[in-house]
Design a protein around this nucleic acid. Structure first.
Length: 571
DNA sequence: GCCGTTTTCGGCCCGACTGTTTTCAGTCG
């Protein structure tokens, strides 16, 4: 069973307890457990099999550990079964509608006999809801609108899609005179792989005027709310954007607060409390006196912490590291001297070798690896042994025209079902750069997949495993394999792990990245560009790497040509 | 239900907005 499924169960327990009006701290405790499990880099089922004590995990106590074992045994636990008997399980679905929580879900159930979203929709349309205490016509309207949104925007936006919206908003906001300063906070600023909504902080002399101009943005489909402090809108594609106003004296505190993550914020507020201070979105306060607030740097400093970059703010050890001044010096886009995966017209790419090389040089790169597919990927017209050799000759011919740039003759070779490679080792050993990846038989058992990857790693002819989990966000789950074993084998056989920059791949995912880093693995960045402009996906590789705590020295793309040549030379 | 240089009980992050009220509960982030 996957961590996400276990997390869902604990969230459902929390929802059901919430509806029952159980102790709010108990409810919160279940939610904390759910979040922790979801974010855990290890599969909890594996930990259980290895007889690890699950209650050693933060936010998991004796009682939750017991429930986890029960869930792993039979897919559910008694606590959940009992709660479901007492309360219609579909009530928790109602809580997923924006503006509806446990109190209202219970009210609908008790006073209208509503047990599902469908029934709630009917009750609104029949104007039964407005008869309830504390509700009116507007409530019905909002609920119907909320149901529509819920049905159309299940899930979160990819980071790259959110980035497009931010760029579009940037053009509008930069043009508003009444706005002195604005900044995107939230999970977008933390560069999370998906984004639930956009939080934009605004400093404006005349808020009324600024609000009016903000609302003129053409992408707005719906205004959800507007007040003195905040304006919320929904864009045409369903993405919610919250604009919040702050003064300059509290702008840093607001940025810190709304950048999150929630868990990081709570950890910071605890730290403030320990000093008898209060931390909120306006600053750090000792009584009524503000000790800091203007900049994030000042706030961290006041709490006696090194500045923590947004990408690390997940409460995954960054507080302790900042406390000991032991934060990593995160890799930056400027550290990248080249791209180590791209395709050309020789397989499924759109541009020629020359075009890709030109685009790389325009980006200031000193090297680029051309890595077309091997023959097993039929749809891409992949290369066989002979074609790979000829293609390498063609790449080297172009490479010969440069003296300040290295075009690596490479290939993305398929790892076949049992771990053999799709091209002969002799053909591969004549190339500068060989990355290997899984494009078939995604649903092998964990044992079979682990053996498959280990076999490829141990061939001694591959430099890296490309997009190691082969997941496609929103389309395909990760393949199952024993990460510890594979990562250790990569370290021992000097095989790198790729961070693939395709917007829907971002593979390795950040938490696995951290795990591989701890295992001693070195990484490679590859945009997997299938056309010249996609070389710009490199920024997504860097985002993932930063969230995975990687420094420049952990990434071969930061090497000079000479260093790289030496590093990847096969004996 | 979790947690502990505040340690086995008694705490647990904090403020704004909405829709309905006329002082607030519920929801959200």
């Amino acid at each position: 069973m996957e961590n996400a499924q276990i997390a869902d169960i604990f969230n459902e327990i929390a929802d059901l307890l919430d509806i029952k009006q159980a102790n709010t701290f108990r409810v919160r405790s279940y939610r904390n457990a759910a979040r922790t499990i979801r974010d855990l880099p290890d599969r909890i089922e594996d930990l259980a099999e290895q007889d690890e004590d699950l209650s050693d995990i933060p936010n998991i106590g004796e009682s939750t550990a017991e429930k986890i074992h029960e869930i792993l045994d039979r897919g559910s636990c008694k606590r959940l079964d009992d709660l479901r008997k007492e309360t219609p399980a579909d009530l928790t679905q109602i809580m997923k509608i924006p503006s509806l929580g446990p109190r209202k879900a219970l009210q609908f159930h008790e006073q209208l006999g509503v047990d599902s979203i469908e029934e709630l929709k009917e009750a609104c349309e029949n104007h039964e809801v407005r008869e309830l205490e504390g509700m009116g016509a507007k409530t019905e309207e909002n609920i119907l609108e909320g149901i529509k949104t819920f049905e159309s925007t299940q899930g979160r936006a990819l980071y790259s899609d959110a980035e497009d919206r931010v760029e579009s908003l940037r053009r509008h906001l930069d043009d508003i005179d009444a706005i002195d300063e604005w900044e995107v906070a939230g999970s977008f600023r933390r560069c999370k792989e998906t984004v639930g909504d956009l939080d934009i902080l605004v400093r404006a002399g005349d808020r009324k005027k600024a609000t009016k101009r903000i609302l003129e943005y053409s992408g707005i489909a719906d205004v959800i709310g507007r007040g003195k402090e905040k304006v919320s809108v929904r864009l045409g594609d369903g993405l919610q954007v919250d604009f919040r106003f702050f003064e300059s004296g509290s702008f840093g505190a607001a940025l810190l607060y709304f950048t999150g993550s929630k868990a990081h914020g709570i950890a910071l507020r605890r730290r403030a409390q320990e000093r008898d201070w209060k931390l909120n979105e306006y600053g750090i306060f000792k009584g009524k006196k503000r000790l800091a607030g203007k900049t994030e740097e000042a706030l961290y400093h006041r709490l006696n912490l090194a500045y923590i970059p947004p990408e690390l703010r997940e409460d995954r050890g960054e507080m302790e590291a900042a406390d000991e001044d032991a934060l990593p010096e995160l890799v930056e886009l400027d550290d990248v001297r080249g791209d180590l995966q791209c395709h050309t017209t020789a397989s499924d790419g759109a541009d020629s070798i020359e075009d890709m090389a030109k685009a790389a040089r325009e980006r200031g790169y000193r090297f680029l690896a051309i890595t077309d597919h091997s023959k097993a990927v039929r749809v891409t017209q992949g290369l066989d042994d002979d074609a790979a050799r000829k293609h390498a000759d063609a790449i080297r011919k172009v490479d010969g025209t440069f003296d300040d740039f290295w075009l690596l003759a490479g290939v993305e070779v398929d790892i076949l079902k049992r771990g053999r490679l799709d091209l002969k080792e002799k053909a591969l050993s004549g190339l500068d750069w060989v990355i290997a990846s899984v494009h078939s038989y995604f649903s092998l058992s964990k044992k079979e997949m682990t053996d498959r990857l280990l076999a490829a790693v141990k061939t001694g002819v591959i430099h890296a495993i490309a997009h190691p989990t082969s997941r496609m966000m929103g389309k395909r789950e990760s393949i199952a394999f024993d990460r510890e074993k594979v990562f250790e084998a990569c370290r021992d056989h000097k095989v790198f792990l790729e961070i693939n920059g395709q917007p829907d791949r971002l593979d390795l995912p950040d938490t696995y990245c951290r795990q591989a880093l701890d295992a001693g693995v070195t990484f490679t960045f590859g945009t997997d560009a299938h056309k010249a402009t996609s070389l710009d996906f490199m920024r997504y590789c860097v985002n993932v790497a930063r969230r995975g705590w990687l420094e420049k020295t952990n990434v071969v793309n930061s090497l000079t040509r000479r260093q790289l040549k030496k590093r990847i030379k096969r004996d």
